[in-house]
Design a protein around this nucleic acid. Structure first.
Lengths: 219, 219
DNA sequence: CGGGATCCGTTACGATACTG
DNA sequence: CAGTATCGTAACGGATCCCG
């Protein structure tokens, strides 16, 4: 177990990095923003060792960023606390910054696509109208996500919504291309997205929200 | 020289961490946000080894986040590029998040106070009126900073301004206490700050801006 | 003196194997 | 499923030395 090698400075930036600055920590948090996850789900992160994952989870729990639930049933679930939710802003700024760089030549696609949840939620939250409400199923490479806007409060979670008003289907690579500024938004909506009902107007409303969110990221 | 141990994921968050996620990298960038710095200034960071600093600077230069200027004169100066400036938002969110945690018992004060520049600039930028303009000298523990607002564009740099309209003197510990929420803003302005002219109104205007900036951080 | 380079002991990470 | 245990390797920390 690690524990030394901290900055131990008074500066708030260093204090933050002392909690979330270790390798994998922010990637783990990124996944948990898509909803609670179990150990084995997080282990699908390409390249993380199980002992590292254990160490990070223990430390995040100790610092009050996550909790473990239901250890009795044999099903342990890790979940963000209110404090842990606050890392969303950090992750969003990292995503905005990271979109300026090309992906490595030897990229390995992630085992799960939970990464999109934080970025999508924060990006939409910034541009949503205060009176908007909708609940759509977003399916990315076959993986379902729930995008819910409740009077201007945006929530994005892994898993299909119970009663979606509409659905949007697309691919992860297309989403990345448009966030990176390599694909125009109208090309994306025209050729890489399939909208469907039952309430088709809600699908179009979500497409519009998504467009404004991505435009705001690219400035 | 390092170079392996990258995430190599398509996810923009991972791409960002592949550039700025290594130990010390964000701390170095933090310092450079206060203006250009030389190798020896950055080496005052408590605990960084010179070979580590060399490695991080090389990598930041290679990734286009910083440039080295004037190597001919024997005076090498490292400076943020436009791309590097964009890390300001990440650092601000880290500072906001980090202020929720207590400082370590064995804190070592930094050799320089350049850390305040990014946080101060971003915090003020968020709440400044578009038509505000001022140029004040901010002296923290004797170290001078220049805070300039030019038609709503905020700039904070290490070093005294040439023609300050006013001055504010305070201490680093008091600033940290108020950012952490441990000291009330009115207590700070009443007992831990000294304002002076020549244009006393500008000093009060800056104090007001600072108050609104910190209040916005604490929400 | 500023701007590093070199060396070496220690710590953290990565991979795999194994267990309650 | 949710972790331990072990071990080789890469990165870090501290010190010293070097060169213009």
């Amino acid at each position: 177990m690690s524990g030394t090698r901290r900055y131990r400075l008074l500066c708030p930036i260093a204090r933050a990095l002392d909690r979330v600055g270790d390798r994998w920590t922010l990637i783990i948090l990124r996944d948990l923003h898509a909803g609670p996850a179990r150990f084995s789900e997080l282990q699908t992160l390409p390249g993380i060792a199980s002992n590292l994952l254990t160490d990070r989870l223990r430390r995040l729990e100790r610092d009050g960023l996550i909790t473990r639930r239901g250890a009795e049933y044999g099903t342990t679930v890790y979940q963000l606390t209110d404090l842990g939710e606050r890392t969303g802003a950090i992750l969003f700024e990292l995503a905005t910054f990271g979109s300026h760089f090309p992906a490595d030549a030897a990229v390995s696609k992630p085992g799960n696509l939970r990464t999109i949840a934080v970025t999508l939620r924060m990006a939409c939250q910034r541009v949503v109208e205060p009176d908007m409400s909708l609940c759509v199923a977003l399916i990315v490479d076959g993986e379902p996500f729930s995008v819910a806007v409740d009077d201007g409060i945006v929530d994005v979670k892994a898993g299909a919504p119970r009663a979606p008003e509409a659905a949007m289907e697309t691919s992860y690579e297309a989403m990345i291309a448009v966030i990176d500024g390599e694909m125009r938004m109208d090309d994306f909506t025209a050729h890489h997205v399939e909208l469907s009902g039952p309430d088709y107007g809600k699908a179009e409303a979500f497409a519009g929200l998504l467009g404004r969110a991505i435009n705001a990221m690219l400035t």
